[in-house]
């Protein structure tokens, strides 16, 4: 059974419909890339999947085995205020909060997990630095590390590579694929990089205020939409 099943869902902001008639399933352990131009409703859909925004139409069925506390999330824009005092370590560790349940304090394994994710993303050297004073790319990696701390079954990433330079971005795709394969964590990732999306993911969801395409990456390449957007590059 699918972890999350979206049935004909639509989203609106103040009766302004921005995304309509979306139908797709997120299977356990699958890797879905969401493509589409700016303003096509990708982030809105992500918020819907996370329960942060209610669809005005349709239903999002979430399997009983998937709890919110199994989900890791990396937002697109970092809504964190410019002047927030927090160290990188404090930010990353807060990703483990959903593991605590009613326990009030972090355990040794929580701290170790946070540290190993920071090591993974190469931000261990700046663990005591102030989050707000980091470069965009470093902040991005800290937020990704936090998402990794929180993810047990599903990792939802909204344009994770937007602030990264190309080399780091390569590593990032590799890393996400590894997480997907080794830890069997399903990935839902918004991306602007069509080539990499097709290369790494199992399924493609293409949005343009409605669903243009949902299917396997191979089918996407063969589809008309896929051909147009790939621009005959392959």
């Amino acid at each position: 059974m699918a972890m999350i099943s979206c049935q004909d869902i639509s989203f609106a902001y103040e009766s302004n419909i921005v995304l309509s008639a979306v139908n797709f399933d997120i299977e356990e352990g699958s890797y879905i890339s969401i493509l589409g131009e700016n303003g096509s409703g990708k982030s809105t859909l992500i918020k819907g999947l996370l329960g942060l925004q209610k669809p005005i139409k349709g239903k999002i069925n979430i399997s009983e085995t998937l709890k919110n506390s199994d989900i890791g999330y990396m937002p697109q824009t970092n809504a964190v205020q410019k002047d927030f005092p927090a160290s990188v370590y404090e930010v990353v560790l807060s990703g483990r909060l959903n593991n605590l349940g009613i326990r009030p304090f972090y355990r040794k394994q929580d701290r170790e997990n946070a540290l190993s994710n920071m090591e993974f993303l190469n931000i261990i050297d700046i663990k005591d630095c102030c989050f707000r004073e980091l470069s965009g790319g470093q902040q991005q990696r800290a937020l990704l590390a936090r998402a990794l701390c929180a993810a047990h079954k599903l990792l939802i990433l909204d344009e994770p590579s937007s602030g990264l330079d190309p080399l780091v971005s390569d590593d990032l795709y590799q890393l996400i694929k590894n997480i997907n394969l080794k830890q069997k964590i399903a990935i839902v990732m918004v991306s602007h990089d069509i080539d990499r999306a097709v290369e790494y993911s199992d399924y493609i969801l293409h949005l343009q205020n409605k669903q243009l395409f949902f299917g396997t990456a191979a089918d996407y390449l063969k589809s008309d939409i896929g051909k147009i957007f790939m621009g005959g590059r392959k």
């Binding site: 890791g72 937002p75 936090r146 929180a150």
Partner: peptide, 8 residues
């Protein structure tokens, strides 16, 4: 938002 999304 992150807290809500991850079940806090």
């Amino acid at each position: 938002n992150f807290s809500r999304a991850t079940g806090v």
